[in-house]
Deep mutational scan, measured.
Amino acid sequence: RPMNAFMVWARIHRPALAKANPAANNAEISVQLGLEWNKLSEEQKKPYYDEAQKIKE
């Protein structure tokens, strides 16, 4: 299954978030990633939607 825009973004940002929160488990990191993603504007998300579309094609 191809990655969606959030997954493209999260793949880039997960390592830094995990390093900054070494005690957090994957579920907690995923929740935090979701919160951070939701704070982004549509303009900030656009490159990730574009990349996800390329992956689908």
Rank of each mutant, 00 (worst) to 15 (best):
L35M: 10
N25W: 03
A27I: 10
K56E: 10
G34S: 13
E36C: 07
M7C: 12
P2K: 11
A27F: 09
I55Y: 08
L33N: 00
N25T: 15
G34L: 15
V8R: 04
F6A: 01
N25A: 06
K54E: 08
R11D: 15
L35W: 08
A52L: 08
A52H: 03
Q53W: 05
P47E: 05
D50Q: 11
A5R: 01
E51V: 09
R1E: 13
A27P: 03
E42Q: 11
I29N: 01
Q44M: 06
L35I: 14
A20Y: 03
A16Q: 13
Y48T: 01
N21I: 04
M3A: 07
P22T: 03
L40K: 02
A52Y: 12
I55Q: 10
I29G: 01
K46P: 01
A24N: 04
K45D: 00
K45V: 02
A18L: 14
N21W: 11
K54G: 06
E57A: 07
A23R: 12
Q44K: 08
H13W: 11
A16W: 08
W37Q: 01
R1P: 13
K46F: 04
P2M: 07
R11T: 13
W9I: 00
A52S: 05
R14Q: 05
A27E: 14
P47M: 06
L35T: 06
W9A: 00
S41V: 03
Q32T: 06
P15K: 09
L17P: 01
N4E: 10
E28M: 13
L40E: 01
K19L: 14
A24G: 04
L35C: 05
S30A: 13
A10Y: 06
A10D: 07
I29Y: 02
P47G: 04
W37H: 00
A16P: 03
K46A: 12
E57L: 08
Q53P: 02
P22K: 04
K46I: 06
E51A: 10
H13G: 02
A18I: 15
A5L: 01
Q44F: 05
A10M: 06
W9Q: 00
N21V: 02
L40I: 03
E36Y: 10
E42F: 14
N26S: 10
S41M: 05
L40M: 12
K46Y: 04
Y49A: 11
H13K: 09
L17H: 03
D50M: 14
A23Q: 13
N25R: 04
E28I: 08
A20R: 11
I12D: 08
Y48C: 02
S41Y: 02
V31L: 11
Q32A: 11
E28T: 08
K39S: 08
M3G: 07
M3V: 14
L33H: 00
A27H: 15
M3N: 11
V31Y: 13
E42C: 12
Y48D: 00
V31D: 06
Y49I: 08
N21T: 05
W37M: 00
E43V: 10
A27T: 11
A23P: 02
R11V: 14
P15W: 05
P15M: 08
F6K: 01
K54I: 08
K39V: 04
Y49D: 04
P15Q: 10
A10T: 05
E43P: 07
R11L: 13
V31F: 14
E51R: 11
A20W: 07
L33Q: 02
Y48F: 10
L35N: 08
E36L: 15
K19C: 07
I12N: 04
V8K: 02
